[in-house]
Write a protein that binds this DNA or RNA. Structure first.
Length: 444
DNA sequence: TCATATT
């Protein structure tokens, strides 16, 4: 009694279903959509180019989307361009890939929960084959004979997947189970990452100290976009069995198809509410540590390195011979010192300006709690810092402990290497070296 | 352990 018809007419029937969105990185900010379109049209059919712009300033963010009419065309664009050529003004080759969630959108992947523990592939196959050809079935197992109660499943078409979802979700108990199956669209990568990030927050582990240069925030470690945190996709929509009209090409972003009383499953269950369980952290610690209120506020966990060249804010430079540090005049007075550093604080971080060749540093073992600003501060004694960037995990906001510092001169960079490489910052020894050259200049 | 970004 499977009515595949019903499914197909709710999906609009436009040819758009087939089109594929690609993400393109390393696009020089000055390029126009028309220029990009012309360029990409040389290698594939491209319907549209959309430059991704800053919401506020409308300036290009250095990347764009391409809309291709089919996967074939999209793949042509990817293989012809990805990592293949560097546009004038870019620092590394074009990055061309499926936009976030796009691959998954095309995959029609379903999540199946509440499977019996002892279910076999054959049983699941038999049940789901009623609705279409199963392209891929993966039952998550603890051991060969026991399932974890869930599976991922792909059909050839979205209509088939939708038919199975509508026919079985909440309505079908498999032999050996007292609860009905739960079927939903599998989470996208983004949803998984968001959930992971939330879990990290929840457990309070792995979260760097809130930097004293920012307002203390419960979510200081997360990118702004994650505020407020996800509240558990669709977990509180009991009773929504109604089939929403699936809009044209996009499946719903959130899943409200879980029957009431169903707890979900280990993979998809998340803490329902984080906000109320979060406790402010690290404020007291900050106030009681010796640095707070001194002229050393921006460097939590900083231990005066023996090798440290002096001059971080209030410290009098050690009469060093490299001309970069502020000259020591009669005053090592705090007000004066902090004025100096405050004025340079605002310029060194943020944009990723590259300096001239050999003026850019790669730094590893940066203390976890350092942000761009702290990195910049730590390196400003050796020359003019054009930019300082600590890399951060996109999903969790946690520092990856490496970053880049760019100076305006190779001399400054070399000086920083001499003074900072191997010095003790936080727990580990800093590794400071010249950044590898990324540009692929055509050998021929 | 060497460069992001997803309207």
């Amino acid at each position: 009694m499977a009515e595949a018809e019903k499914a197909s007419d709710s999906s609009g029937g436009g040819g758009e279903e087939e089109s594929v969105k690609l993400f393109v990185g390393q696009v020089p900010k000055h390029m126009t959509e028309a220029q990009l379109l012309a360029m990409f049209k040389e290698v594939a059919i491209v319907d549209e180019v959309n430059i991704i712009k800053d919401k506020a300033t409308k300036a290009s963010r250095g990347c764009c989307f391409l809309i291709c009419p089919s996967r074939e065309e999209a793949d042509k664009a990817v293989s012809a361009c990805h990592n293949k050529r560097t546009l004038a003004g870019a620092s590394s080759p074009l990055q061309v890939k499926y936009a976030d969630g796009e691959l998954e959108r095309l995959e029609h992947k379903l999540f199946v929960g509440m499977l019996p523990k002892n279910v076999s592939d054959a049983e699941v196959s038999a049940l789901f084959s009623q609705y279409g050809n199963i392209k891929d079935l993966q039952i998550l197992r603890g051991s060969p004979r026991t399932s974890k109660g869930c599976a991922f499943l792909k059909y050839e078409t979205k209509e088939q997947a939708l038919a199975a979802l509508e026919a079985l979700n909440g309505k079908c108990k498999m032999e050996g189970s007292s609860v009905p199956l739960v079927i939903k669209w599998a989470d996208t990568e983004k949803e998984r990452q968001a959930r992971k990030a939330q879990k990290a927050q929840f457990w309070g582990s792995n979260v760097p100290h809130t930097s004293p240069t920012h307002q203390p925030s419960l979510f200081g470690a997360l990118p702004m976009g994650y505020l407020p945190p996800y509240n558990g996709f669709g977990y509180q929509h009991p009773g929504t069995y109604g089939f929403m009209h699936y809009p044209m090409q996009n499946r719903p972003g959130f899943h409200n198809l879980i029957p009431p009383g169903n707890q979900g499953n280990a993979l998809h269950g998340g803490p329902p509410d984080l906000v109320s369980t979060m406790a402010p952290r690290s404020f007291a610690a900050m106030q009681s540590n010796g640095y707070m209120g001194s002229a050393f506020p921006a460097l939590p966990g900083f231990q005066y390195p023996l090798a440290y060249p002096g001059g971080m804010m209030s410290n009098r430079p050690l009469g060093n011979s490299h001309g970069a540090a502020q000259p020591v005049s009669m005053s090592s007075d705090l007000t004066n010192a902090s004025t100096i550093s405050n004025s340079s604080i605002t310029m060194g971080s943020g944009d990723q300006i590259e300096g001239p060749p050999d003026a850019n540093l790669f730094i590893y073992h940066i203390p976890q709690e350092f942000g761009d600003q702290e990195l910049s501060n730590a390196f400003q004694a050796f020359g003019r810092v054009l930019s300082a960037k600590v890399f951060v995990d996109k999903a969790t906001g946690v520092s990856k402990c490496f970053g880049f510092v760019s100076y305006d001169s190779p001399t400054a960079a070399q000086c920083a290497i001499n003074m900072m490489n191997g010095s003790q910052l936080g727990g580990k020894k800093l590794k400071v070296q010249l950044k590898r050259d990324n540009k692929q200049s055509k050998p021929y």
